[in-house]
Computed example of a mutant assay.
Amino acid sequence: MKNKVLQYDKFFDVKGLVEEFKEFARPKAIKHRMMDKQKIVEKQKEKQEVSYVSGRKKDIAI
């Protein structure tokens, strides 16, 4: 098991993926992505129109 972990570690290190992942997973980067997504959602909400659907007739059943 340890050999497999070492193989994966070496592979990620050779490909430079460790540094890329550290950059991707840092808290500030995640916060910035979340803020960008929140702005997109707010714009979508502004574009949506709220329409009123008339309800049923308000007759009384006898």
Rank of each mutant, 00 (worst) to 15 (best):
residue 59 D to M: 06
residue 43 K to M: 12
residue 45 K to H: 03
residue 29 A to K: 04
residue 29 A to W: 01
residue 58 K to Q: 13
residue 53 V to E: 09
residue 27 P to T: 04
residue 57 K to G: 14
residue 13 D to I: 03
residue 32 H to L: 12
residue 16 G to C: 01
residue 2 K to Q: 08
residue 27 P to K: 02
residue 4 K to V: 15
residue 28 K to E: 15
residue 43 K to H: 09
residue 53 V to N: 07
residue 47 K to S: 06
residue 57 K to T: 15
residue 27 P to Y: 00
residue 5 V to M: 02
residue 55 G to M: 08
residue 20 E to G: 05
residue 23 E to W: 12
residue 33 R to T: 09
residue 35 M to D: 09
residue 23 E to A: 15
residue 21 F to S: 13
residue 55 G to N: 08
residue 39 K to V: 11
residue 34 M to Q: 14
residue 51 S to R: 07
residue 43 K to F: 04
residue 40 I to Q: 11
residue 36 D to Q: 14
residue 25 A to D: 12
residue 7 Q to M: 06
residue 7 Q to I: 13
residue 38 Q to G: 06
residue 48 Q to M: 08
residue 43 K to L: 13
residue 21 F to G: 03
residue 13 D to E: 06
residue 59 D to I: 14
residue 54 S to E: 15
residue 1 M to H: 02
residue 9 D to Q: 11
residue 31 K to C: 06
residue 8 Y to G: 00
residue 50 V to N: 01
residue 30 I to A: 04
residue 36 D to V: 14
residue 6 L to A: 14
residue 9 D to I: 11
residue 23 E to T: 15
residue 27 P to F: 02
residue 36 D to A: 15
residue 22 K to T: 02
residue 62 I to L: 14
residue 18 V to N: 11
residue 10 K to R: 15
residue 11 F to T: 14
residue 56 R to I: 08
residue 30 I to L: 10
residue 7 Q to F: 09
residue 59 D to Y: 10
residue 18 V to W: 04
residue 54 S to G: 06
residue 16 G to Q: 00
residue 16 G to K: 00
residue 7 Q to K: 04
residue 12 F to W: 11
residue 58 K to Y: 12
residue 62 I to C: 12
residue 43 K to R: 13
residue 23 E to G: 09
residue 18 V to D: 03
residue 59 D to L: 10
residue 8 Y to L: 01
residue 15 K to R: 05
residue 59 D to T: 12
residue 7 Q to T: 15
residue 51 S to H: 08
residue 42 E to R: 01
residue 33 R to M: 04
residue 53 V to S: 07
residue 49 E to M: 03
residue 54 S to C: 13
residue 18 V to L: 13
residue 51 S to K: 12
residue 15 K to W: 10
residue 15 K to L: 12
residue 19 E to L: 06
residue 1 M to W: 01
residue 32 H to Y: 06
residue 24 F to T: 03
residue 6 L to K: 10
residue 46 E to G: 04
residue 34 M to H: 14
residue 40 I to T: 14
residue 36 D to I: 10
residue 49 E to F: 03
residue 37 K to N: 12
residue 31 K to Y: 04
residue 61 A to F: 05
residue 29 A to G: 01
residue 1 M to L: 02
residue 56 R to C: 04
residue 55 G to E: 09
residue 46 E to T: 13
residue 45 K to R: 07
residue 31 K to Q: 09
residue 21 F to V: 14
residue 47 K to G: 02
residue 11 F to R: 03
residue 41 V to H: 03
residue 8 Y to V: 07
residue 36 D to P: 01
